[in-house]
Structure formats: C-alpha cells, structure tokens
C-alpha cells in the first residue's frame, strides 16, 4: 500500500517538474516549486527518512519560497522567448535513450526495503549495533551525522558557509562593502497595514522559534538537529522581517552579527574537533571530552549540532538580507 502511495506521489513529482520547466511565467514556476518541495518531503517521509523530510520541510516551506521571490523581484517575471527551431526528433531520441538506459540499470536495483541490499549490509548494521553502546542516543541518524561521519557533516557546514559567502559576493557586486550596511530602506514593504496577518504572524513567531529550539536540542531523541533547527529559526526571523519591514529585522540582528553567527558556528564545530585532538584523541573523536566516553560523545554531538544550527541560521539570514538589499 505504502509503495503504491509512494509511486503515485513520485509521479506527481514528475508532473510538477515538467510543469516547472515548461512554464514561462517565473512566478508560477516559483509556486510550483513550492508544491514540488512539499511532495519531496512527503516522499522522504513515506520512505521513513524523517530527518531528511524535516530538512526539506524547514527549508522548502519557508526559506526557499522567500529567497526565490526575492530573486524574482530582481528579474522580469516572464521568461524571454527565444526563437529556436524545435528539434523534436533529436529531443525524443535523447530522452528515450536516457529512459531506456535508466530503466535497464534499474533492473539491478534491490527492492525497496530489501534487507539484503548492499547499502544495508555495508556499515549500516555496525552503526545500528554500536550506537546504543558507544553514544547511547535513540536517534541513530543523529549519531551517524554527528559522530560516526562527523567529517562529512563538517564538510557540509563549510559548504553552506562557502555558498553563503558566494551569494554575498555576487549580490554585493558594484557596492562599497560586502555586508549590506545599515541604511534607510527606501521601500519599506511590510505587512504593518494588514492588521490580521500582522497580529497572527506576531503570535506565531515565538512558537516557531520555540519549535526551532526543540528541534535543535531534541535531535538526539527525535527527527531533527542543527540543520533543520537553523532553517526553522531563520524562517521565524524572516517572518518577523516580512511583518515589520526589513529594517526592523536588521535592527534586531545586524548583518555583522549574522555573519558572526555563520562563521562562529562553523568555527565552533572546528574547535570541538581541535579540542578533541588537544585532549589526546583523534580529530572529532568526542570520547575524550569527558571522563566517560559515552558522555563525551553526547557533549560533542550537542556542541557540534549547536555550531551547525548557528551557521545555518546566520547564512540563511545573510542571504535573505542580501537579496532584500539588492532590491532597493
């Protein structure tokens, strides 16, 4: 039954993707990409990948729509029509060939959930067996991300940071400084004049931030962790910026603080690794952080998740403000 569901949602995903590619109005493409993200999260959820689904939910529902609309404000809304001769035959042949090749390759794939599939026989059983013993937290995903594959997660955090720096560079081209300086926003577009959304939104912000903190510090027990929490808290602050105007949000969290958060979070992760080395362990081997190795692992995971959360919040908000600054 679940497999049927999953197939059905996947085919909806394909329909949406084709519609996004074919639509010439960029605004409707943004709206459809919102639906795409919702479908993606549902698919992850049905495959039992709750942590990934939560990431998709946190980024896709709030932040990515806002950023895409911010980008759309800088561009015309219609895609420019190009005169091109339609090469229908060539396209059809290419698509059919790729389709056949992928279909042929899929015959070698194991069935969904097959316990004998190669991925389930490599290191996964070891992780499942060792997590209660070595780290003693219920959510194995957090254990794998935070401790067993700590190098990969460190790399991801730096990828996020690098992407943020890249966006800031691109959007600040032709301006005096990298950071959007404190300025008087000329167009103060906010929802202050809309009473009902304003009041409801203000009521909602504390709950969003609270939920973000819950996801941050509950990641060892349920789905969640630093990435998701960072995106949720960033979404809450973006909601504040939408309601009160961007200037008010910049007063609460100036650009320098945001960049500081991003860099500080990434550095916190790195420094935890270095501290492990100084205490006589390997890089990112948290066992040496406390007298009891299991406690040490838990402390290490909480610290690095905090670093990840700070880095993601700082980066997302910096990108948001960079788009808003460019708009003016």
């Amino acid at each position: 039954m679940i497999v049927v569901f999953s197939l059905f949602l996947l085919s909806l995903l394909v329909v949406t993707a084709i519609a996004i590619v074919r639509s010439e109005n960029l605004f409707s493409a943004v709206m459809l990409s919102g639906i795409f993200s919702l479908l993606m999260a549902l698919n992850f959820f049905i495959l039992d990948a709750a942590d990934v689904a939560l990431t998709e939910a946190a980024v896709g529902a709030g932040v990515s729509t806002v950023l895409l609309l911010g980008a759309l404000a800088l561009t015309p809304t219609e895609e420019r029509r190009r005169k091109r001769e339609r090469k229908v035959a060539a396209t059809l042949v290419t698509v059919t060939m790729i389709f056949l090749a992928i279909s042929y390759a899929s015959f070698d794939q194991p069935r969904i959930g097959d316990p004998d599939a190669p991925v389930h026989r490599h290191v996964a059983p070891w992780y499942l067996e060792q997590t209660p013993e070595l780290i003693d937290i219920p959510n194995v995903v957090t254990a794998v991300l935070g401790s067993f594959r700590g190098y990969d997660t460190l790399g991801e955090v730096y990828v996020v940071l690098t992407a943020g720096i890249g966006v800031l560079f691109l959007l600040s081209a032709g301006r005096p400084g990298l950071l959007p300086h404190r300025r008087e926003p000329r167009i103060e577009s906010s929802l202050k004049s809309h009473l009902i959304p304003h009041v409801v939104g203000r009521v909602l912000i504390p709950f969003i931030v609270l939920f973000g903190l819950y996801v941050q510090f509950h990641g060892e027990y349920g789905p969640g962790g630093g990435f998701q929490a960072g995106a949720i808290i960033a979404a809450g602050i973006i909601l504040f910026a939408l309601l009160e105007g961007e200037g008010a949000a910049l007063k609460v969290l100036p650009p320098r603080v945001l960049v500081g958060l991003a860099i500080g979070g990434a550095l916190l992760y790195l420094l935890v690794g270095v501290a492990c080395m100084l205490l006589g362990g390997n890089f990112l081997d948290y066992s040496v952080l406390a007298a009891d190795p299991v406690t040490g692992q838990q402390i290490g995971i909480i610290l690095i998740e905090l670093g990840v959360g700070l880095a993601v919040t700082g980066t997302l908000l910096s990108i948001f403000h960079a788009f808003a600054a460019r708009e003016q």
Partner: peptide
C-alpha cells in the same frame, strides 16, 4: 507553523 510564511512572502 511554517507554511504560512510562504503566503505572506
């Protein structure tokens, strides 16, 4: 909690 933000944006 978060879906609302998209509409407001």
């Amino acid at each position: 909690l978060i879906n609302f933000i998209g509409v407001l944006a």
